[in-house]
Nucleic acid binder design. Sequence first.
DNA 1: GTCTATAATCCGATAGAC
DNA 2: GTCTATCGGATTATAGAC
Lengths: 162, 162
Amino acid sequence: MRAIATDVGVQAGALYNYTPDKQSLLFGLLQTHMEDLLEAFRDDASQPPLDRLRHFVDFHIRFHADRPDEVFISYMELRNLTPDNFAQVEALRRRYENRLEAILQSGADRAEFDIADTKIATLAVIAMLTGVNTWFRAGGRLSLDQVIAQYWNMVRKSVVAG
Amino acid sequence: MRAIATDVGVQAGALYNYTPDKQSLLFGLLQTHMEDLLEAFRDDASQPPLDRLRHFVDFHIRFHADRPDEVFISYMELRNLTPDNFAQVEALRRRYENRLEAILQSGADRAEFDIADTKIATLAVIAMLTGVNTWFRAGGRLSLDQVIAQYWNMVRKSVVAG
DNA sequence: GTCTATAATCCGATAGAC
DNA sequence: GTCTATCGGATTATAGAC
């Protein structure tokens, strides 16, 4: 709390005019982050599964690359939430995962994708894409467009049918 | 330190007969974990790249699934290392990544793999495989063998040529 | 709405008896 | 080698003046 107060230019006590306690402040950050993620992702179920998947890959990488601090805090501080707050954030995360799983299931149903278990494939793809945040820095060797292009190639090949 | 002391059945002060300070204790854990990882992974460069990659996938998932606590600590406490200790652990991690990158590069050189950038592919594969630890629990819906089989399928398809 | 001051608690680490 | 006791410092949160 003292570090936050210093960053925003007030004394620590003044923060309690804006939040009842530290837990509420942290929970608000994580909840807003997940709600923004869910709201920002637009999926069109009338499109071909491969197009929907390509949009997901592009969206996921860009959304997270634009918010490295929120993503870092959301992951590192997740275990400092109270059990109730943790359950709420986890429920939002599961809703987001289900959006991807619906795309993979749609492609599998049409035999356009070859996926043994859509739940595992969902977790595998999200882990791979979120991993970009651990190393990507703007101005590095590759542009974000180049990074997205290669990840899309790998994700596409990993799920498409023969 | 008090929590560790309680777990091992001594008072907090007694721990300092075994470690000079908390930082050394943490660094020792992370360093040993990474050295064990590097030592346990056997790669045979005379084998076909696809066989070497399959072995890496199998090894990586099993090694990490067998040590969920060490993996969790290694990730969550990495930023609590001093800059010097952090650099040493990062160097060990990079050595491990290079082992996988050598496999991918070998397959790309023989045109058996189709990979745009081996460094990105390395990070993508490791992120995907390490993600297993966030959800896998022994005794769950799928056995570790089944999980490995599907991840191997996805990794293989994501890198093989045409 | 912000400040200073402080309460109450927790932490890593040390000292000294046994 | 472990214990009890404690030091010095950091933490979240509150109280009350302005």
